[in-house]
Computed example of a mutant assay.
Amino acid sequence: DATLRAAGYLAMGGQIVDATIVAAPKQRNTEAERAAIKAGQIPEGWAEKPAKLRQKDRDARWTVKFSKARPREDGAPQVDLAVPAFGYKNHVAIDRRHGLIRGWTASHAAAHDGARLVEVVDADNTAGDVWADTAYRSAKNEAWLAERGLVSRIHRKKPPGRPMAARTRRANARKSAVRSAV
């Protein structure tokens, strides 16, 4: 951090936080092996085979990533696509002004993004703005940011069963313009 400061990279533009899934090779485990791995144990028979034990990834997890399909030409509504993924998540916070990674942590893919906000936000950033997507919005995170004098620029969620208010949609669009840097 002192080296960056000496080179003229003072963190003063705010922070942008995001997570990305990193795929790992899929494991072909039996139900019993899967249950043992989830319980934090080594499955029966693996300890006697060190080569097999080295090849098995016991920390990665499955998750489902949702995204929108491309709009169809006939005007039919968009469909949510559910894509299963096995692996890990990289959680990063970058400085808005310079784009340098200021905080980083990794977790299994099924970990909730919002739970990692505290781990990646850089306390030395002189600007108080923090941008993130809706996964990071929670009462706990909002209180934590306010407690430290940081300004939340976290996207707001759409209310269930109702359309999103126009002003909220516009505010999220302005935030997305900043968040696109990460």
Results as ranks from 00 to 15, higher is better:
Lys26Gln: 15
Gln27Val: 07
Gln27Tyr: 03
Arg28Pro: 13
Asn29Asp: 13
Asn29His: 15
Thr30Pro: 00
Ala32Trp: 10
Ala36Tyr: 01
Ile37His: 09
Lys38Ala: 15
Lys38Ser: 12
Lys38Tyr: 09
Ala39Phe: 08
Gly40Arg: 04
Gln41Pro: 07
Ile42Lys: 09
Glu44Cys: 13
Gly45Met: 07
Trp46Ser: 02
Trp46Leu: 05
Glu48Pro: 01
Glu48Ile: 08
Lys49Glu: 09
Ala51Val: 10
Ala51Lys: 13
Lys52Leu: 15
Arg54Val: 03
Arg54Gly: 07
Arg54Lys: 14
Gln55Gly: 15
Asp57Thr: 01
Asp57Trp: 05
Arg58Gln: 14
Arg61Asn: 04
Arg61Ser: 06
Arg61Pro: 06
Trp62Phe: 02
Trp62Gln: 06
Val64Ser: 03
Lys65His: 07
Lys68Cys: 12
Ala69Asn: 12
Ala69Met: 10
Ala69Lys: 08
Ala69Tyr: 04
Arg70Gly: 12
Arg70Ile: 12
Arg70Pro: 12
Arg70Trp: 14
Arg72Phe: 13
Arg72Ile: 09
Arg72Gly: 07
Glu73Ile: 12
Glu73Phe: 13
Asp74Leu: 04
Gly75Ser: 08
Gly75Lys: 04
Ala76Glu: 08
Ala76Asn: 10
Pro77Ala: 05
Pro77Cys: 02
Val79Pro: 01
Asp80Gln: 12
Leu81Ser: 10
Ala82Gln: 05
Pro84Asp: 06
Ala85Val: 11
Gly87Tyr: 01
Tyr88Gly: 04
Tyr88Ile: 01
Asn90Asp: 10
Asn90Ile: 09
Val92Phe: 07
Ala93Val: 06
Arg96Thr: 14
Arg96Ile: 15
His98Ser: 09
Ile101Val: 05
Ile101Glu: 02
Gly103Thr: 01
Ala106Phe: 06
Ser107His: 00
Ser107Gly: 06
His108Val: 11
His108Tyr: 14
His108Lys: 14
Ala109Pro: 01
Ala109Val: 02
Ala109Lys: 00
His112Leu: 10
His112Gln: 15
Asp113Val: 00
Asp113Gln: 00
Asp113Ala: 02
Gly114Ser: 04
Ala115Thr: 14
Ala115Tyr: 09
Ala115Pro: 09
Arg116Gly: 04
Leu117Asp: 00
Glu119Pro: 05
Glu119Tyr: 01
Val120Tyr: 07
Val121Met: 05
Asp122Ile: 03
Asp122Gln: 12
Ala123Lys: 13
Ala123Cys: 14
Asp124Ile: 06
Asp124Cys: 12
Asn125Ala: 08
Asn125Leu: 04
Asn125Lys: 03
Asn125Gln: 08
Ala127Gly: 06
Ala127Met: 11
Asp129Tyr: 10
Asp129Ser: 09
Val130Thr: 01
Trp131Leu: 02
Ala132Trp: 02
Ala132Met: 07
Asp133Trp: 00
Thr134Val: 09
Thr134Lys: 13
Tyr136Lys: 03
Tyr136Met: 02
